[in-house]
């Protein structure tokens, strides 16, 4: 069993695993019934699914005889940016009241995304809108 054969089998296995995760993630995006739950499913597409496809690309280029590690750059970029975009989408869901508003933090504090700066408050009309913290 030569090295080319082993890398080709490994690339095919990576392609199968990545396809399975992509299918599971997209079915989850379609079938779940709550915006925050739906946010959870496609993260598997962005990390494991695409990661396995890029790994298959690396292994396939090794089996062709020309090594290329460029795909690690795309993988790193996707792994860094996936949580940021998920955080932004969760903020959209929270502020559009598409999900339950998070409960009050235990200490005398506010969630940072729901925090209202002093200058933005509509103070003269409704001073009672922001309750005084004790």
């Amino acid at each position: 069993m030569s090295a080319e054969m082993i890398t080709t089998y490994a690339a095919a296995l990576c392609l199968f695993v990545g396809s399975g995760f992509i299918l599971v993630g997209v079915i989850g995006l379609l079938k779940f019934n709550d915006p925050m739950t739906r946010l959870h499913a496609p993260t598997k597409v962005g990390t494991i699914g695409i990661g396995m496809l890029l790994l298959a690309s690396i292994l396939h280029s090794f089996s062709l005889g020309s090594s290329s590690m460029h795909e690690l750059l795309i993988m790193g970029f996707l792994f860094v940016t996936a949580p940021i975009s998920a955080n932004f989408i969760a903020k959209v869901s929270i502020h559009r009241k598409a999900c339950e508003t998070p409960p009050e933090p235990p200490r005398d504090d506010t969630w940072s995304t729901l925090n209202q700066p002093e200058g933005d408050a509509i103070a003269p009309e409704a001073p009672d809108a922001v309750p005084e913290k004790l």
């Binding site: 997209v26 995006l29 496609p42 597409v45 962005g46 695409i50 989408i89 969760a90």
Partner: peptide, 13 residues
């Protein structure tokens, strides 16, 4: 939010 998420998934696909 769902529409943005669907567009993000389509870009990744």
């Amino acid at each position: 939010g769902d529409r943005i998420l669907a567009l993000d998934t389509m870009v990744i696909n």
